[in-house]
Amino acid sequence: MPLVSTNRLHKFYGKNHVLRGIKLDVEEGEVVTIVGRSGSGKSTLLRTLNGLESIDDGVIEVDGARLDVDHADGDTLRALRQKIGMVFQQFNLFPHLSVGQNVMLAPQVVKKMTNAEREGIARDMLSRVGLAEKFDAFPDQLSGGQQQRVAIARALAMSPKVLLCDEITSALDPELVNEVLNVVRRLAAEGMTLIMVTHEMRFAREVSDKLVFMHEGRIHETGHPQEMFARPATPEFANFIGSLN
């Protein structure tokens, strides 16, 4: 059984039909990269997966937590969100909390961990992203790359089954991109299930088990990245690859 599965997923913004029946299965340990032109619905899809956007039809299931149109109350959403971590393009760290506090907040208030437990986890997660020594620093004292790594540690501290990453290097200066990609690379190697949107095609080809090409709200083409790049099956994807260079 797939870890993440969506079926008949539809989403409208007013009259704009943004997701037009998405069926996506992600196995445990799989790394899935979603690509596509601007406006094709990549972010919307990621955001519906953890309930940041409501859906108008369809089902989302993540490791036994299930959400559909008729079952999307607060408890259902929070059950889903405990299975899914999310990292954003703009980091979105809490500026009034130290790095350690950023990572410990959800373990404290959501999982009700004791002081020692949550501090242990926070220190572990921060060393996983190479920032153990920044425990007491504040977000505004860190570079963009470091902030994004803290954001990853913050998501990991809730022990999610799957991590969503929406263009997490797009807001970074070019020289800071690699330190973040390296963290993602390591997570992938450790078997973390990842669903990401990225414009770093080389990286996507390197780490992904599955590539998903979205076009006008649908999954237009999907498969193994090497094969898809070698032999695009649809003119739209061929076109998309062509536009990259």
């Binding site: 953890n50 607060g74 969100r81 971590g85 999310m86 979105n92 809490f94 959800a106 809730m158």
Partner: peptide
Amino acid sequence: EAAESLALTR
């Protein structure tokens, strides 16, 4: 949104 995605309540 970051807080929501960490499963915090309102």
